[in-house]
Nucleic acid binder design. Structure first.
Length: 415
RNA sequence: GUGGCUAUAGUGUAAAGGUAGCACAAGAGGUUGUGGUCCUCUUUGUACGGGUUCGAAUCCCGUUAGCCACCCCA
């Protein structure tokens, strides 16, 4: 009985981990350019945090959370998303007093108990960004521009941006009422799922993929008919800024978010290469959330990118640190040679050079190893060399080799 | 949670109820201590548990996992 990873949670091994690192490095550079700083929050939070923010009737809270009791009987939950913990930390640490506008980003695992498939696992990684304290459409637009920079920075050109406005606490209720009114008397014509949605999350009906439901909802007035003047203006300005910022987008009045806290701007970044799970990033504005969680009345806007999906789209990105290429290799024969080499190896590594060696084996096998590691320089040290106080330095590209005094080795190799 | 497809060395693939094989990868060696090409050798496998059968990788059932779709979402 071997022990295996649990369903929906996978290991990220080399060389794939190199893609992850390359992607993360690139994204961090771009975050830097926008002034976002990293926040690291715990992976476990009180269950109530997600119930109150994501929403009791959301699919996440209803059936997807990893919830358990600790030894004192307190209900804890493995975070299913990143925004609520960041907002909790923002309030708890009084960041509104420290930053007029807080720009925070995070990288880390999220957990949802779902049926795994490609691009969807139970532990999955997200890269997220939250901008707190700005109500201006400029904030919404910058988040989308930031996303655009990330995708183009990674060489991903075949994504499309879709945006919508979900209205606010003033105008959205009126729209929900209109949907209910529209459905009245013809509930039976909708699919089972939509009949459930009518009660829990009416907006989702617009998102149904079944043809009969789509046809029925063609006749529903779109949310744009219900926007209040403030929402209308906000949305118009966001679109104007996106045009100015060269973010190509498509308006899609059927975009709905699965989390209750969103209002006004909602957006998704989609790609056809991902199959059914075609969203690689999504986000929106959440102006009431900070207040709902017990903080001051501060607006926010944010997004999350699915790391697994992102690496699926950018498989050619790799860790680009120069030191990992062309390592030096020390072929050591016998324990005396190992002892003699150690301080030289240490000095070279202190200069951030990559130094490899085998852990035993014949000279032949050690050189084979050096070749596989693509080492350019190999230092050969055996009994004869130790006695003479020299080392053989071999250039693997042209096969030439020279004897170098041990004392001059570091200088020669770090040239 | 629902439905469908799949499961053979590390990877990719053969074996149509009768000896589990091939390629690549990995490791050792090819006369004292010199890599790549080449040659030889070696390691590693029928996901797990039952059943049918003289005999199962192959047929059946269950479990697990992966994939595809629904649901949902990143």
């Amino acid at each position: 009985m071997k022990i295996t990873a649990i369903k929906g949670m996978s290991d990220i091994l080399p060389p794939e981990s190199s893609v992850w690192r390359g992607v993360e490095e690139k994204v961090r550079q771009i975050f830097d350019s926008f002034g976002f700083e990293e926040i690291r929050t715990p992976i476990v939070e009180p269950t109530e945090l997600f119930v109150r923010s994501v929403g009791e009737t959301s699919a996440i809270v209803e059936k997807e959370m990893y919830t358990f009791e600790d030894k004192k009987g307190v209900s804890l939950t493995l975070r299913p998303e990143g925004t609520a913990p960041v907002v909790r930390a923002y309030i708890e640490n009084g960041l509104q007093a420290k930053y007029p506008v807080a720009k925070l980003c995070y990288f880390g695992p999220m957990f949802r108990y779902e049926q795994p498939q490609k691009g969807r696992s139970r532990q999955f990684f997200q890269i997220g960004a939250e901008l707190l304290g700005a109500e201006s459409p400029m904030a919404d637009a910058e988040m989308l521009i930031l996303l655009k920079n990330i995708f183009s920075g990674l060489g991903i050109e075949d994504v499309r941006f879709e945006i919508n406005s979900l209205g606010c606490a003033v105008c959205r209720p009126k729209y929900l009422e209109a949907i209910h009114g529209f459905m009245k008397g013809k509930e039976k014509k909708f699919c089972d799922d939509c009949q459930k949605r009518a009660k829990k999350n009416p907006l989702r009906i617009l998102d149904c993929k079944k043809e009969p439901c789509r046809e029925l909802t063609e006749a529903v007035s779109t949310i744009s008919d219900f926007w209040c003047e403030a929402c209308r203006k906000h949305y118009r300005e966001v679109r104007g800024l996106l045009l100015a910022g060269h973010v190509p987008f498509k308006e899609n009045t059927r975009i709905v978010r699965g989390l209750d806290y969103y209002c006004r701007t909602a957006f998704e970044v989609l790609c056809d290469r991902l199959g059914a799970q075609n969203a690689v990033a999504a986000g929106g504005r959440y102006d009431g959330l900070v207040k709902d969680l017990g903080g001051p009345d501060i607006p926010g806007v944010g997004f999350a990118i699915g790391m697994e999906r992102l690496t699926l789209l950018a498989p050619l990105i790799h860790d680009s640190r120069p030191t990992i290429h062309e390592p030096m290799f020390f072929a050591l024969l016998g324990s005396e040679a190992e002892q003699a080499a150690l301080s030289v190896i240490q000095e070279l590594r202190e200069k951030s050079l990559r130094v490899e060696s085998a852990y035993g084996g014949s000279l032949k096998s050690q050189l084979r190893r050096a070749d596989k590691l693509k080492a350019k320089w190999v230092v050969i040290l055996g009994e004869n060399e130790v006695k003479k106080g020299v080392a053989i330095v071999k250039n693997m590209h042209d096969g030439k080799q020279n004897e170098i005094l041990m004392g001059r080795l570091v200088g020669e190799l770090s040239k």
